[in-house]
């Protein structure tokens, strides 16, 4: 994936969500394409990186993974500093982890950058039989809050790659646009940032969620 040593962009992405929703598994699936059944609980913060190509530029994703138990203030004032993207994870088989999403979102919005790209992830679709959070509920919430949304299975490697690439590409586009705007203010072709949020309800489907155009 990585092309030589040259890195064009470095993006910091944070992973948050309740304990045991599979944050570390999602990360190890993305960074090393691994899944370990007996992985230990994260204590504090862990770190992974992976370099991907986006429009012929190499983008290094630095991903910070925190323990779900950690209220970030206890440990560090800088956890969200410099983060351009966030993966907000819940477990589709545990309703409570979904109900805590607004709290995590509030924490993100009060401490992270305003332009943070946020992807909500419902993990563990391999446990469909135990599903406790209907996809419709999550979709509706994501739409209301203007979040990207995907359901994933770190175990079966479903949509994990997609989730990260979506976030990284979105960050990439925002930065390109910013640069373009800075380069030439008079350029009218710069698309507006309005309605940029995209809702992804199911495997590999991308549905633009502009106002008034609902996927339901």
């Amino acid at each position: 994936m990585a092309s030589g040593d040259r890195i064009d962009y470095v993006f910091k992405v944070v992973l948050i969500g309740d304990s045991a929703v599979g944050k570390s598994q999602i990360l190890s699936r993305f960074a090393r394409d691994e899944f370990s059944l007996d992985s230990k609980a994260t204590i504090g913060v862990e770190f992974q990186t992976r370099t991907v190509l986006i429009e012929h530029k190499s983008v290094k994703a630095q991903i910070w993974d925190t323990a779900g138990q950690e209220r970030y203030r206890a440990v560090t004032s800088a956890y969200y500093r410099g983060a351009l993207g966030a993966m907000l994870v819940y477990d589709i088989t545990k309703r409570q982890t979904f109900e805590h999403i607004p709290r995590w979102l509030e924490e993100l919005r009060s401490h992270a950058d305003k332009n943070l790209v946020i992807m909500m992830i419902g993990n563990k679709t391999d446990l469909e039989d135990d599903r406790a959070v209907p996809m419709e509920d999550a979709k509706e919430f994501a739409q209301k809050e203007g979040l990207f949304f995907l359901e994933t299975s770190a175990l079966q490697a479903v949509n994990v790659e997609m989730a990260f690439l979506t976030v990284l590409t979105e960050i990439f586009n925002i930065i390109i646009k910013k640069n373009l705007a800075a380069d030439s203010n008079a350029n009218n072709s710069v698309p507006s940032l309005e309605g940029k949020k995209i809702l992804i309800p199911g495997p590999a489907q991308i549905i633009p969620a502009k106002k008034g155009m609902c996927c339901t």
Binding site: K40, I43, G44, V45, V75, T76, A78
Partner: peptide
């Protein structure tokens, strides 16, 4: 580089180097 000590020391200290 901005490597804050608690990012790694938190784990080292909490489990007294167990990990």
């Amino acid at each position: 580089l901005g490597v804050e000590p608690q990012y790694f020391a938190l784990r080292w200290l909490r489990v007294l180097f167990g990990r």
